[in-house]
Design a protein around this nucleic acid. Structure first.
Length: 226
DNA sequence: ACCCAGGTGGCCC
DNA sequence: GGGCCACATGGG
């Protein structure tokens, strides 16, 4: 993995953060009531609009099964029905159940014990689980464990590409790029990613031109995909 | 009738 | 390290 370069003529991550924060305001993310709900949401939101996740979480709450031991004991068919709105429901049900079983068997259902690790070993643990890759792992570390691990998602990559913030666009390079150029601060990491998602949902679409995007004025190169 | 959404794992080269 | 594919529902 190459060291990501900061292109000097363009926005730095912190300048981008400041600009977006002043434009969108604080988001106070992640939309969940408990750390465990963050984990469930992180798995369910994979490649799916958050609106669908809300329905699934609601189903789990109504069924009173939003709990690691309850999910690990739930018949897979029932879990599939609850999370159906999030798509890929057979995969996600299987993975969610195995993640919950892991939490129960290894940590007796206590996320505190799981989260009471150094970031690097916590991340390695999470990444070893089926259904948790870098974005989900970092989301869980940042928003559930509340430790500084910057989250990269499709919007982040798209923005970096269009603004030409950095030349390396693979996950770990982008993560390192942001972490190397921001204060190591949980609050900033949380808000930055939340605001990027807010920007992405509203403006940073896959279509070549994103009308009315506040970044259009900020950077002329932010007009189209290559 | 398309295209897209806060990815991931498996398989290939 | 990439590129390609399956996975599946709901909204525009």
């Amino acid at each position: 993995m190459k060291e990501p370069n900061l292109r000097q003529h363009l926005l730095s991550p912190y300048e981008l953060y400041s600009f977006l924060l002043s434009h969108f305001g604080a988001q106070h993310w992640w939309p969940a009531e408990t750390p465990f709900e963050v984990i469930v949401g992180a798995v369910l939101t994979q490649q799916v609009a958050w609106k669908n996740v809300e329905k699934a979480i609601e189903n789990l709450k109504n069924a009173n099964v939003l709990d690691s031991s309850k999910i690990s004991n739930l018949p897979i068919e029932k879990l599939e029905v609850y999370i159906k709105p999030t798509g890929f429901y057979r995969q996600k049900a299987r993975r969610l159940k195995s993640i919950c079983s892991y939490i129960c068997s290894e940590y007796n259902g206590s996320l505190k014990d799981l989260f009471n690790k150094e970031i690097s070993s916590l991340r390695a643990k999470l990444l070893s689980l089926n259904g948790i890759a870098p974005e989900s792992a970092d989301s869980i570390i940042l928003y559930a464990a509340e430790k500084p691990s910057f989250v990269i998602d499709a919007y982040t990559r798209r923005i970096c590409e269009r603004l030409q913030l950095t030349n390396e666009l693979d996950y770990e390079s982008l993560k390192k790029f942001f972490e190397n150029n921001l204060p190591e601060n949980v609050g900033i990491y949380k808000e930055f990613h939340a605001i990027i998602v807010e920007l992405g949902k509203n403006y940073c679409k896959t279509k070549p031109v994103c009308k009315n995007c506040p970044l259009n004025k900020k950077c002329k190169s932010y007009t189209q995909d290559k």
